[in-house]
Design a protein around this nucleic acid. Structure first.
Length: 246
DNA sequence: CACCAGGCCGTGC
DNA sequence: GCACGGCATGGT
């Protein structure tokens, strides 16, 4: 089964990747530039094996999701094979704080500007996303100057509280949600995204404006428990599907 | 001009 | 506990 690599990398779970010529996707991760055209290209690299969650059986999950109801079947048939990425905790946290009341294109723009201004150049023209140390003295005014808007003070707070991220892995889902929401600018939706796309906590079910539309229209009266044990993956399918058909 | 985007915060009740 | 307005910015 063929992965939908474009949807995985450009569909809103990560803002690290760019699509270049000839179907090549590139990103600066793990202190180097990765260039891939397929998941196959990632299978020989230790970092990318983890990043793409290659040891999880997504084909099996996909079959079971597809069998659950007609809407999910339609979504799976249309979108193809998705994966849930395992991103760096700090990168994911800042990324999804930037995501609130924002759109994917602009989030990517802010991500790139933060990288160019505060990250470091690992190849000519390719900058890493800044670490918490590289951001520790950056002020809200400086974030505003890059276009972060009202999220600027949230970024300052997140950098100051970044140690929280070290303890999340061992926590159960509800504790992890509460811990993340101690950071200003992180509410239930942003916390869910961080837990799914960085900590592999698959019971997350982020409710953004698109998913509210899906739930109201196609799953009235239901909540995330209906999708157990594939809450996060179902959500990702439905999110991609509703945006695709809209 | 309006309304929207992978929402959250502060306030009021 | 829930409802509501405000919020930076850029695109349509």
């Amino acid at each position: 089964m063929q992965e939908n690599l474009r949807e995985i990398l450009m569909g809103g779970q990560t803002f690290s990747w760019n699509e270049e010529e000839d179907g090549v996707f590139s990103a600066v991760l793990n202190e180097k530039v990765y260039r891939i055209k397929s998941i196959e290209d990632a299978s020989s690299d230790q970092y990318l094996r983890s990043y793409f969650d290659l040891d999880y059986d997504y084909e099996k999950a996909m079959r079971e999701i597809s069998a659950k109801d007609d809407i999910l079947k339609e979504a799976v048939d249309r979108i193809g094979l998705l994966r849930l990425l395992k991103q760096d905790h700090f990168v994911a946290t800042i990324s999804f704080i930037l995501s609130q009341n924002n759109n994917i294109k602009r989030i990517k723009g802010l991500y790139d500007r933060l990288s160019r201004n505060y990250g470091h150049e690992v190849e000519p023209g390719y900058f890493s996303f800044p670490t918490k140390d590289e951001l520790k003295n950056v002020s809200a005014e400086e974030y505003r100057a890059l276009g972060c808007g009202f999220r600027a003070p949230f970024l300052v707070d997140a950098v100051g509280k970044a140690d929280i991220l070290d303890g999340i892995e061992e926590m159960d889902f509800d504790s992890a949600m509460s811990a993340l929401m101690e950071i200003k600018g992180i509410g239930p939706k942003v916390a869910s995204c961080i837990l799914i796309f960085s900590y592999q906590k698959r019971e997350g079910f982020p409710m953004d404006v698109w998913m509210k539309k899906v739930m109201n229209t196609y799953y009235p009266g239901k909540d995330k428990s209906y999708f157990s044990p594939y809450e996060a993956l179902c959500q990702q399918y439905l999110f991609s599907w509703i945006r695709d058909i809209s």
